[in-house]
Computed example of a mutant assay.
Amino acid sequence: MMSICKQLQPTVHIPPCGLNLEAFNSRRQTNKVVIVMGATGTGKSRLSVDLATRFHAEIVNSDKMQVYEGLEITTNKITKEEQCGVPHHLLGAVQNPNADFSADDFSDAASIAIESIVDHGRLPIIAGGSNSYIEHLVDVLDYSFRAKYECCFLWVDVSMPVLHPYVSKRVDEMVRNGMVEEVRKMFDPNASYSKGIRRAIGVPEFDRYFRDEKLYDEKTRARVLQEAINEIKDNTCKLACRQLGKIHRLRNRDGWTLHRLDATEVYRRRGNEAEQAWKRHVAAPSAAIVDEFLRSFAPAVKRHAMRVPAMAAAASH
């Protein structure tokens, strides 16, 4: 939900590699897709833009809250400036805040977007923290997606003891940037927090504050507000743990081949040292992985065939 390292320096510039994807498409049985995964706050959006500027790609958002229009600050949606001119699909695409955008809806919409990107000779990059969306897209319908597309999974990982203080500080930054007022404009005492964009972390936590703030004196109002902010921090850290657990399950139980990129050192440093750590530990190695992936022509169907026994074994437990 809150998924870009905004407190780090600007995106590392990597010169275009000059790969002709249309030529690649004519030489292999399947098209290729890059999928960027990771817990909230690890830098998935930043990495996807880094890669897109190098490999002539377009990005498909797979964050189930950022797919809705609105709550730009609360959902930590990537800004136009941060997009660096890279086309983004399914970002703010659902205008009804009460609509349910299911995993089936995502799979249908993402498939259309990916097909369009491929038809234009560009590389689709799927990026976002909703692993259930990604899993549904990739492994639903007897793995028809894998039969059509060869996937490269990049996992941006940060040690939880390092990530948790970062995401907590990021909540404070979001509050300074106007999150409370942004959520206040959407507050409806009769609305449900079980569907639509109001499920987003940062919305239900303010319910008590918005309902009763006029009844509080200044001291009580400040205390209740801080309690809501602390709850948002706790829930964000819990989300990161759940996301990491899901990634481990996809890798260890379901047999997904994930390329782990350890970004922990980036968060331990500041200024130019953080920028260099990002380039050294994340941007450069991920670019090398994708470059090799695009230059290989092993049919995806063979890779899929190798996965089936592992999946079957997992299902038997």
Rank of each mutant, 00 (worst) to 15 (best):
C237L: 04
C17T: 13
N252I: 03
P97Q: 09
V282I: 12
N230I: 09
P189M: 00
T236M: 07
A57S: 12
M306N: 14
W256P: 00
H164Y: 09
S168E: 15
K279H: 12
F101W: 01
D119I: 03
E213K: 13
T40V: 09
V266R: 01
V167N: 14
A288Y: 08
S3F: 13
K6T: 07
R198Y: 09
S194K: 10
Q66K: 11
N131Q: 10
T53M: 09
R280L: 04
T11P: 05
I126K: 08
N98M: 03
R223I: 06
L215V: 06
T40P: 04
A300C: 08
I78T: 12
D172W: 10
E150Y: 12
R199S: 02
D119W: 12
V175K: 06
D212R: 03
T257P: 01
S62A: 09
D291H: 14
L239P: 03
D234A: 15
M1L: 01
L261W: 08
V203C: 14
D119H: 14
T11W: 14
P299V: 10
N31W: 00
S130N: 03
R122V: 02
Q66L: 05
F297N: 10
Y267H: 06
S144A: 04
L8R: 15
Q66G: 09
V94I: 11
Q9K: 15
A52P: 07
L91E: 04
E227G: 09
L21H: 13
M37P: 00
Y216Q: 03
G121V: 11
R249P: 00
R307G: 02
A110D: 05
G129N: 02
T236K: 05
M1R: 11
K302I: 12
D105Y: 01
L258G: 01
P15Q: 14
M37N: 04
R223N: 11
F24L: 06
L21M: 07
Y209P: 00
G245E: 09
L90H: 09
N20S: 14
H281A: 05
E115R: 02
R242H: 05
H259Q: 00
K195H: 11
R211S: 05
M160R: 03
V171P: 08
V162R: 07
L258V: 08
R46W: 09
C17S: 08
K6C: 08
A298K: 15
E69D: 11
V49L: 04
G202V: 01
P124A: 02
A127Q: 10
L137M: 14
E115L: 05
N96M: 02
A310Y: 06
Q66D: 02
V94K: 07
L225N: 12
E218G: 04
Q7P: 00
D172N: 14
K233H: 04
R176E: 15
A93F: 06
K6R: 15
L90A: 03
N235W: 05
V34W: 03
C152Y: 08
A39I: 05
N98C: 09
K219Q: 08
K169M: 10
D100C: 00
A200I: 01
M1G: 05
R46H: 11
I73P: 06
E115Y: 04
Q226P: 10
T257I: 06
C5D: 13
L239M: 05
